[in-house]
């Protein structure tokens, strides 16, 4: 198992290959549909983002409410393709990684290659287990969005799989192909 910490350096990103299982420790920022829309509107208007996105990772998650004394509720990934229209603009601003689940568009894959970034999948539906990896949660922006607000999370040993690496290799294609050829 590969252990990595944030912020991700280009050397670390280049060492990650599609299909690697990794445990991530460090800070990540949450954002999904509504927050992405606002972030990209700010970029288009030439305004500052509510956090310094350079070198950071965005986790596509809208957690359940935290019970008293806990940093967060259940917190698994949401489906990533809905963020595709916004992702290249964020990668161009210095974003280095995304955590979600499911396929990405050709444009996003090209932008990942161009910007030396990486796309991870968290385990969709394993939201109670994922919550155990979240040690801190701080509201950063857009409180009015509720579950969709931007939060900074400190995660410890969050289990992820590298799906699209910095060379554009896509594990959703590779893994399925390897499985099918193993049957022959």
């Amino acid at each position: 198992m590969i252990r990595i910490t944030t912020p991700l350096t280009d050397d670390v990103i280049k060492s990650l290959k599609a299909g690697d299982s990794v445990l991530l420790t460090g800070y990540v920022y949450t954002a999904r549909d509504a927050a992405h829309k606002r972030l990209v509107e700010l970029i288009k208007a030439g305004k500052e983002l509510p956090f310094d996105i350079k070198g950071q990772i965005i986790y596509y998650v809208g957690p359940t409410p935290a019970k008293e004394g806990q940093p967060i509720g259940s917190a698994g990934p949401t489906t990533s393709y809905r963020m595709d229209p916004y992702t290249p603009a964020l990668l161009d601003k210095g974003l280095k990684g995304m955590i979600g689940k499911g396929k990405r568009s050709g444009e996003v894959i090209e932008s990942i290659k161009k910007n030396c970034a990486v796309y991870f999948a968290a385990i969709g539906g394993a939201a109670a287990l994922t919550a155990k990896c979240v040690k801190e949660s701080t509201l950063i922006a857009y409180e009015d969005l509720g579950a969709e607000a931007i939060r900074r999370l400190y995660v410890e040993d969050l289990p992820l799989v590298v799906v699209i690496d910095s060379e554009g290799n896509n594990y959703y294609e590779i893994g399925q192909r390897e499985y099918l050829s193993s049957l022959k």
Binding site: S21, V61, G62, P63, T64, K67, G73, S74, A75, G76, T78, I123, G125, A126, A127, A128, L129, A131, K132, A147, P159
Partner: peptide, 24 residues
């Protein structure tokens, strides 16, 4: 490994009375 994680997730949700998935 994935199936194992999903089995563990269901156990955690049950033992701690919390949602299995954040999309309720």
């Amino acid at each position: 490994d994935i199936m194992d994680i999903l089995i563990k997730n269901a156990e955690i949700a049950k033992n701690e009375n919390m949602p299995m998935c954040q999309d309720t």
